[in-house]
Nucleic acid binder design. Sequence first.
DNA 1: GTGAAAGCGCTAACAC
DNA 2: GTGTTAGCGCTTTCAC
Lengths: 309, 309
Amino acid sequence: MRGAPNVSEARRAAVLQAAAELGYRPNLVARSLVERRTRTLGVLVSDLHNPFFAEVIDGLQAEAQERGLRIVLGTGRRDPAEEAETVEAFLQQDVDGLVLLSPRLPGIEDVAAAVPTVVVATRAEHVDVVVNDDALGAELAVAHLAELGHERIAHIAAAGTQERRAGYESAIARHGLEALIADGDVTDEGGYRGAQRLLANGRPTAIFACNDLAALGALTAIEEAGLSVPGDVSLVGYDNTYLASIRHIALTSVDQPRHRMGRLAVEALDARREAPGAPPALHTVTPHLEIRSSSASHAPRAARASRAP
Amino acid sequence: MRGAPNVSEARRAAVLQAAAELGYRPNLVARSLVERRTRTLGVLVSDLHNPFFAEVIDGLQAEAQERGLRIVLGTGRRDPAEEAETVEAFLQQDVDGLVLLSPRLPGIEDVAAAVPTVVVATRAEHVDVVVNDDALGAELAVAHLAELGHERIAHIAAAGTQERRAGYESAIARHGLEALIADGDVTDEGGYRGAQRLLANGRPTAIFACNDLAALGALTAIEEAGLSVPGDVSLVGYDNTYLASIRHIALTSVDQPRHRMGRLAVEALDARREAPGAPPALHTVTPHLEIRSSSASHAPRAARASRAP
DNA sequence: GTGAAAGCGCTAACAC
DNA sequence: GTGTTAGCGCTTTCAC
């Protein structure tokens, strides 16, 4: 007997030893079949390449492990159809819960009806959700830049980060400034193009990008324009991934508590399992600003020679 | 009946429709139990944060999907004990094969005896292995730098990349140069410290780092020393991850065909399943050099003003 | 072609 | 405390 209730110590030892000698291994699939639960969580990652997700997964795994749950990861490579397939596979596998990291997937409610489901890092209707407060994050970024004396603070927006955009807009308005927005993407390339447009039109002295990857692209565009960061243009990202912390980059960035978000997701699943009929819960965590050397005060021309220390 | 042999068309249609209406979903765990196979591959990733692995996983997934296999990912966060646990969980789950990405795990042979196993991106004894030719990769890097006129070409070494170090040493010897090595690590931090030591002692004009992450750390150290890349010091990384391609970084790097390595791993597993007794196979793929702007010719002092385009 | 029966390795429920 | 039994949902084998 494996993890047992009332068995004599002697027998247990004997059995355990025999098991070890024979190389016996309990068959989890048989156990799952009879228990009608697999103790497994399916995690759909929209993009394995984005370090943001790796860090959320760390949190997921830590919490899952503590609760004796396994995690199986799948990815749909940002393609709705592939994501649907992956989710279907999870369902057939009989996972006990589903974590959807920034899914592109349509019809999430149907899935949620079949199995406890939580959406992370993206807002969704009629489902449990774990997100950071994007409006606050954007506000932090704008306030930081405004305090540094910037008046022309631009934003690189992207599909999927509308909340940040909205937060930016209202913060800008609150500070009595003018909104300056370019559409980009949550990628290096998208940030690059967005920044190029901003630089050509608006002469911003600061740029708040929708995420770190886009901020990196913006950094390139700024340098290619012969300008320096933060000498000529201050730059703020979002997510505070390890990319931001690489010293060659040293990007000021809004930090989402990724680890905590991962843990919250597992907790939400558990809560849902216990109260299947409860109304959808919205778990919002609080971001903070991690200030590094890509943002500096908007000093007079003479002082902005180069970025070097 | 699901994917069937001899059933009348009419019945099949009827059944399929009924299934759809009832929301019937075949139970994979029951099927696995009776079939004694799960059509699942367990993939152990040593470090989810290293983008190198994400790209290998893409290849794995593509090949697995074509063969009707599922993938479950697990990570041991570079800790041997945690890796062992993860592998044990895979075994209990009854996976049909195991892919170990740069495992730290001891006793791999025992695992391989229990289930088809392939080690990727790290050399191992008595097991099927998929690696790139590190010696050649290092040779490419050194040859490139030597051709650019560099004579003081240093290397940042790390545990786990001895082959690259050895390749570096023999290439350096072949070019009649002097080896200049600092111990570092496959991380930003490790590269930073390694480069600091090299800069303090050897006055290298070029640095070949054990991987891209370490190269980024080196980049920081170089800049902090008041030097520029590639003006004063040329820099070459290894892996050619997307980090290298970010334009603000534009790192010359040795490319491993990651996607192909992922596919090869799945193929190797299949081969092993068909011939369990065959001697361990070593699959070696060929790296190539991706040249970007972090490496340039070793020009006279006057010409090395800055890194700008 | 189609239905019935056995059994995969386990857990739970119930006797001993 | 310990042995026995039924049955999880499927595939396979063998009758029909």
